[in-house]
């Protein structure tokens, strides 16, 4: 187990290196933020002076190695615009994003797994078809179209939920729930589709196995067969897809945060990209990549727990 963790952690390092390299050079190919900092009425000379003061005139390799050395000290640099450390900007914004992601995952798993199991159990019935139609719809409707649909119906017309905003659950839990509901539903749609589909497929596969027939033959209750035997053995692909779906989730978070005005990391990075605030973009993409890698590492470890047959 320790060896597994160690190898995986070590193998993550070159991946992070590649991410850093891609992000840094891609951004440097674009222009730079000096003109935006200088503002609407600035002259070219003022822009040039700002460029020098930001160190943007140094050779690229020098800027790159400077940045890497900084990273090794766990320093993501400071925002070019506000002068605030990127780490503290991330810390400020991480809670709403984490809460939205968490509520989406929890909600999606709670809805999608039973849906998938049901569809598998009643394979080829109308229930199955309905579930699969919902799944394809989930993959096909753009997140923001879904968002506006929900806002229009449930926030504006019916007034069941507030239109926008975020309140920390540690401040006012009731308000948190009412504000997070619509964003969670919006974001969950595609995730439910993903998980329900893989659950259905995995359970259908497992249901054909001998030990299920044995269990059924022994007269076990159907529910128990489904959830204890079938689902347990179908867990690996389901957990995998939850891990891989994190990338999808991050993309969805960016849009959902814009629609519902949630001050999270997604909006931070989109705003930073439109302003070319390099340190924030670099820091956040690295951070998202790190989360993705760490989550998938954790999932690898979970595998060995849920499915003892897997060994690395």
């Amino acid at each position: 187990m320790i060896r597994l963790v160690l190898t995986r952690v070590l193998s993550a390092i070159p991946v992070m290196g590649v991410v850093a390299l891609i992000v840094f050079f891609m951004l440097r190919l674009s222009g730079d933020p000096a003109a935006i900092l200088a503002g609407d009425t600035a002259s070219s000379e003022q822009v040039e002076r700002i460029r020098v003061s930001l160190g943007l005139t140094k050779p690229l390799y020098e800027q790159f190695f400077g940045w890497i050395m900084q990273l090794l000290r766990f320093d993501l640099g400071t925002s070019l615009f506000t002068g605030l450390p990127v780490t503290s900007l991330i810390a400020q914004r991480i809670e709403p994003t984490a809460m939205l992601a968490l509520s989406t995952i929890v909600f999606s798993v709670l809805v999608a797994v039973p849906m998938g199991v049901l569809a598998a159990w009643k394979a080829n019935s109308w229930i199955d078809r309905l579930v699969m139609v919902i799944c394809v719809l989930g993959f096909s409707v753009p997140v923001f179209v879904m968002g506006y649909f929900l806002i229009f119906n449930f926030a504006i017309t019916l007034r069941w939920f507030p239109v926008q905003g975020y309140t920390s659950p540690f401040v006012d839990f009731g308000r948190f729930v009412s504000q997070i509901t619509l964003p969670t539903l919006t974001l969950s749609f595609i995730y439910v589709a993903l998980i329900a589909r893989i659950t259905r497929a995995s359970v259908i596969e497992v249901l054909g196995e001998d030990y299920i027939r044995t269990a059924r033959a022994k007269g076990q209750v159907e529910i128990k067969v489904l959830f204890r035997h079938a689902l347990k053995n179908a867990a690996v692909p389901i957990v995998t897809v939850i891990g891989l779906g994190v990338a999808l989730l991050i993309g969805g978070v960016v849009v959902t945060e814009s629609v519902y005005n949630i001050p999270g990391l997604g909006r931070l990075v989109v705003d930073a990209i439109t302003r070319r605030d390099y340190p924030i973009i670099q820091g956040l993409i690295l951070f998202f990549a790190l989360i993705y890698i760490v989550l998938n590492l954790i999932i690898d470890i979970i595998y060995t727990i849920v499915d003892p047959r897997i060994r690395y």
């Binding site: 070159p14 991946v15 992070m16 290196g17 590649v18 991410v19 390299l21 891609i22 992000v23 891609m26 951004l27 190919l29 674009s30 990338a247 991050i250 993309g251 960016v254 849009v255 990075v269 989109v270 990209i273 439109t274 070319r276 973009i281 956040l284 993409i285 998202f288 990549a289 993705y292 890698i293």
Partner: peptide, 23 residues
């Protein structure tokens, strides 16, 4: 495969936005 892992680890939407604003 390390390069591909690196690309996979960057959320696709962010990579795309960054690429469009770059070019």
């Amino acid at each position: 495969m390390r390069i591909m892992d690196g690309l996979m680890a960057i959320p696709g939407i962010l990579l795309a936005i960054a690429l469009v604003s770059v070019s």
